[in-house]
């Protein structure tokens, strides 16, 4: 796992270099889309830590995304916090809610875990609606321009927004790579592969999974906060089941348990939806067909298949 270090870091840094330069050769429209994709990819990378590496099949990650989004957005709305503190609050909100979710839901496993996380996310969504006077419910609210500034840069303008999205994405990617090359990453994978054996090596599955889920929540929180601050909107629709399924689709398409899979999946799904929307009104059908094809021909996702066939060294 620690071997091939040079090759692995070079690959990741090369991808980051290409992405950083993209703002110079993409149209502003596409660059903004890429910023959105990078933010969604952060969410998917977090999902990947829980699902792809640790084997926790959650259907409740929308709750964690929304936790970050509201933990950043509400202080901005109510008290006029600026982007820096609001982002930290979102990060912490995602991590904290994930830890609480884990304490309750990790008493279960497998299908029960899916159902319990789904139910908590649904409860979170209903809570947002219930407190509509504060949260603005389904309508949501716009984040004020004053809160969308960071160190004097206006995050609602193209270049600062792109750079902020890139910085968060790069941090998330490098942290997850470092994690997967660390002993703790190996322990996470051990939970996915053989929990009973891990226990008999002295690991407490509950605490390992709780830590992994909390990490996952930090990513989701960061993504939710970034979405609110960079794109200026907070709404309860982000807490719906759709946003729990989305990162799973990204991860499955790009390759569960690969560091680059979440980004690749987010990019391709985004492109697919764009292309399909241009071609036909039945774009949901095209996405469905793509997923069926994927499950049939590359059940390990794109990078999972690449790793199996050609590049065993991919982390």
């Amino acid at each position: 796992m620690r071997r091939n270090g040079l090759r692995v870091w070079a690959l990741h840094l090369a991808l980051l270099a290409v992405l950083a330069s993209a703002q110079f050769w993409l149209s502003p429209y596409l660059a903004t889309n890429l910023a959105r994709i990078m933010v969604l990819a952060v969410f998917a990378m977090g999902y990947n830590l829980a699902f792809g590496y640790t084997g926790l099949l959650s259907l409740g990650h929308a709750l964690l995304l929304a936790a970050g989004m509201y933990a950043a957005g509400l202080p901005a709305l109510l008290w006029g916090w600026s982007a820096g503190p609001a982002f930290i609050a979102g990060l912490a909100g995602g991590g904290l809610v994930a830890a609480v979710l884990g304490l309750l839901a990790l008493r279960t496993a497998g299908v029960s875990f899916m159902i319990v996380t789904l139910m908590f996310a649904q409860a979170g969504f209903l809570t947002l609606l219930y407190f509509a006077p504060v949260t603005r419910g389904n309508d949501g609210f716009a984040v004020a321009a004053a809160s969308r500034s960071f160190l004097g840069f206006d995050l609602s303008t193209d270049t600062p927004r792109f750079l902020a999205a890139f910085a968060i994405f790069a941090t998330g990617l490098l942290v997850s790579l470092a994690l997967m090359r660390s002993p703790f990453g190996r322990t996470m994978i051990a939970m996915r592969e053989n929990e009973e054996r891990s226990r008999m090596l002295g690991y407490n599955p509950f605490t390992v999974k709780l830590a992994a889920l909390t990490l996952s929540g930090l990513y989701a929180g960061a993504a939710g906060a970034a979405y609110a601050l960079l794109f200026g909107y907070v709404g309860a629709s982000f807490a719906t089941i759709q946003y729990s399924i989305l990162p799973m689709l990204y991860v499955l398409m790009g390759g569960a348990g690969t560091t680059l899979g979440p980004f690749l999946g987010a990019l391709l799904m985004f492109a697919l939806v764009e292309a399909a929307t241009g071609l036909t009104t039945a774009h949901q059908f095209i996405i469905g067909a793509a997923l069926v094809a994927l499950v049939l021909f590359a059940p390990k996702g794109i990078l999972g298949t690449v790793r199996e066939r050609w590049a065993k060294w991919l982390p």
Partner: peptide, 9 residues
């Protein structure tokens, strides 16, 4: 009871 998909290392 090993981790069959992980390396021996």
């Amino acid at each position: 009871s090993i981790f069959p998909r992980l390396s021996v290392f």
